[in-house]
Design a protein around this nucleic acid. Structure first.
Lengths: 132, 132
DNA sequence: GTAGACGTTCCAGTGCGGGGGAAGGTCAAG
DNA sequence: CTTGACCTTCCCCCGCACTGGAACGTCTAC
């Protein structure tokens, strides 16, 4: 199949497929005499994997890591597991940061409802956000 | 004070100060005869505000919005409050998304510990990440 | 033979928040 | 007078994951 059909099947654009090839998540396919890229079902599987891995929060660079480990050393399950574990940690940290931030923003919003505008000084820009 | 001293006082780089000026969060300062930028204490206050607003999760564009409202229409508290409220909503949504993601990643990690590598098929790249 | 649907390469841009470095002007100290 | 620190403007660069467009080649149908 050619790139357009692959794109339609996988639900991505042809641009994305070429980009993935340049990024290393898709292997360079065979070429027809015309120079057109020629794909088989493995490319469909690979694109499905990429989408699933992205949905799990992996970056393209991490996916490259995983698929290249797959190609060079067989089943990369341990590698994938490590990447996932790292990602879980990152997510937890990020969620904690955002939760702290949300608390702060909520406090500022609460202050917005109890203070009067004439309590602003020019140095503060707005009393809602403490500069200290 | 000149830009270097302001930068040291505020804890940013001179690059950042010029960038902020171009972005509209800092007003264009007076110039010395030499062409050097000449700042006073208000610039220090403003930079402190920008840092505080960034810590509260506002983007530079939103800060521009707030400070220009301040300069054109006096105390922008209601405006700031609306921006904060919007931000709180965004944060809640983002936290919910990340929490969902974390659950998925945790499930995959759990599977990694119960499955064997020889259950991988090439089409899957790795059984840890379902492609269906 | 020609239209148009598809393919190719390469270059450039998006949004965010700056950072790097060149080429040159200014200022204080020794 | 020269050195070195500081300042100026200018334009390009980063990561991230693409997307858009130009200019050109190829294939199929009428």
């Amino acid at each position: 199949m050619r790139i357009g059909e692959l794109a339609a099947t996988a639900g991505v654009t042809t641009k994305t497929i070429r980009y993935y090839e340049s990024a290393g998540v898709l292997p360079a396919p065979a070429r027809q005499a015309s120079g057109y890229r020629e794909y088989d079902h493995r490319a469909v599987d690979r694109l499905a994997f990429v989408k699933a891995a992205q949905a799990a929060g992996l970056t393209l660079a991490e996916i490259v890591d995983v698929v290249s480990a797959r190609e060079s050393a067989g089943a990369p399950c341990a590698h994938v597991a490590a990447v996932l574990e790292q990602h879980a940690h990152d997510l937890e940290r990020r969620i904690a940061e955002l939760t702290t931030l949300l608390t702060q923003v909520r406090q500022l919003s609460a202050r917005a409802k109890t203070l009067h505008p004439d309590q602003c000084t020019p140095a503060q820009v707005c009393h809602l956000i403490p500069t200290a």
